[in-house]
Amino acid sequence: MGLGKSEKKGRIKRLLKDKHVDIVFFQETKQAVDSENVARKLWGYRNMEFMSVDPVGSAGGLLCIWDPSVFQLSGCCCTRRSFSFADQKKNYVYAYLNRADVQEALHANVTKLSYDWEPCSRVIRRWEDSPSTIIPLLQELMANGLRVWVFSGDLDGRLPVTSTKYSINKMKLHLKTPWHPWYLNGEVGGYTEVYKGDLTFATVRGAGHQVPSYQPARALSLIMHFLAGTPLPNSTTLLQ
């Protein structure tokens, strides 16, 4: 088919957008796709990942583009003529939150935005109206008698547990309940400690940056105990 002409790329881009395509394959691209800019001209500004195989001379060439919030690639193998993908997992949260009836029930997307909801938006690229720290906000909440829980996935490489601990330490709070494991279904769900002023810090074992995506049961237990105003189960209670 060839991807060389800008007019053809424009038609493909409009088609992918109109049909809300989550993954697309091209063959006979007849063009090396050696940068994100080339794939972006086809996919637009939505979240994306891609793989490509360069053509040989003026023949061949493969390109696959997909939305990583819908498909998660765990392995692949490619030759001059084919792609083979392993364990692509459908993200039903993405599909669910982009349903028109769900958005209506949540009173979301009332302005009918032209792009989909995504876990991490690439539409908003420069966020300039947020504070550099929320420590003053946490202190205000605690001063008004509100409970505060702070949690981190212990595998989170973006906002690691150590970073969260450094932030809490800056508040210079006195420890009320020392560091100890909390449990779910007889297994360690993570570790927790409680500070005077009613601030609880908890880790979630085996969770990355988006905790519910990695450990939904442990995330649910965390939220349920917060809403109920009860401490996380320790080794003597082993409650759900």
Rank of each mutant, 00 (worst) to 15 (best):
N98A: 02
C77A: 11
K90E: 11
T237L: 06
S114H: 07
L63A: 01
K170V: 01
F201V: 03
S35N: 14
L184T: 00
T203K: 05
D198S: 12
R46K: 13
V123L: 14
T111S: 14
L220D: 06
P68Y: 08
K196E: 15
S114W: 06
P178D: 09
C64V: 15
T29C: 12
R81F: 10
G229S: 08
F25R: 02
T162E: 15
E140Q: 10
L227Q: 05
M224T: 13
N144I: 00
E104G: 05
Y96S: 07
Q215A: 09
V70E: 03
C64S: 10
S235K: 11
P231I: 01
T236R: 11
K89V: 14
N144T: 14
L199V: 03
D116N: 11
S130T: 14
Y96E: 13
L106E: 12
H107V: 06
A202M: 02
Y195S: 01
K176Y: 12
R80S: 14
A202H: 05
F26A: 01
Q215V: 02
D22T: 13
E128D: 13
L106S: 02
G153A: 03
M51F: 05
I223C: 12
C120Y: 04
P131H: 07
S167D: 12
K17I: 02
T29N: 01
T237K: 05
Q72T: 12
G44C: 05
N109R: 01
E28K: 13
Y45S: 14
E193F: 10
V148F: 07
L15Q: 13
D18F: 07
I124E: 11
V194D: 10
E193Y: 11
E140G: 07
G189R: 01
L173H: 05
T133V: 07
M1L: 10
K89H: 11
